[in-house]
Amino acid sequence: MTGTKGEELRKRAKEKRSERFRRAWYKFSRNRISVVGLVMVLAIVLLAIFAPYVTPYPKHAGAFVDFMTGSVGPSLKHWLGTDVFGRDILTRVIFAFRGALIMSTGVLVLVVPLGVVLGLIAGYLKGTWIETVIMRITDVFLALPPLILALAVSALMRPTLFNSMMAVCVSWWPWYTRLIYGMASSLRNEFYVKASELTGASKPHVIFREILPNCIAPIFTKMTLDVGWVILTGASLSFVGLGEQPPKAALGTMISDGAKYLPAQWWIAVFPAIAIMVVVLAFNLLGDGIKDMLATEEGS
């Protein structure tokens, strides 16, 4: 066999891959609501990235005071109204998405590899002391309510976006460990895993090449759902003052500040709250769609 033959074979396989992508999209798009979720998520991400260009008053994102236009209700000029300092709420909500998305991305980047690797090891080595150590530590962290834990951690550290991110991480990784531990401990009994063990494959090969690829679907689904939940947790932290510090915009801070002016100047608190709801909803809808897509992809 010559190299060109190999190339030829590989090329043919590539065409198959684009076919797989089209099939996945077909499965995903069967559920219209998932598509709505996807559009919402894309809109939120794009708005956040291009915030300085799309918002009507980019200057209002930071320390800006204009009491002249303070506490103005929703109008054509300020769609969602302004806060007591005269800052445009729409602008600040969109800028707050930036922090929220950075936070959730950061949390997932740190949490997922750690949680997944620990879960894989514990699940594959079920019945050994390694499993016991990993899973008991996991259980301890799981037993503490995540928000309380995050509050405790961030209260110990200086309140910054990075530190509140760390705080959320501490309470978030065990969920991935649990999820993957359950999967790995059942996947290790699959015959394809047995077959690779019997032929003499190393433990890292079995864990990362045989078991891990079969955990990808639930990991992706959970990650998508978690973006929304991390944003919610982050907002809760910033609501009590632990997170992005003023004058920068954070959804939680905006709500807690606005709460003082309820019910008269309701828009100051209500619109950021609706924004949180929309973000969480969008990622949940997308997550459901991804679950459908990956589940049926496996089944076919």
């Binding site: 699959e190 045989e210 079969n214 990808i216 496996e298």
Partner: peptide
């Protein structure tokens, strides 16, 4: 069952 003895995620 070759359906379960071949890893579905590997070529």
């Amino acid at each position: 069952d070759p359906g379960t003895s071949l890893n579905p995620q590997r070529t």
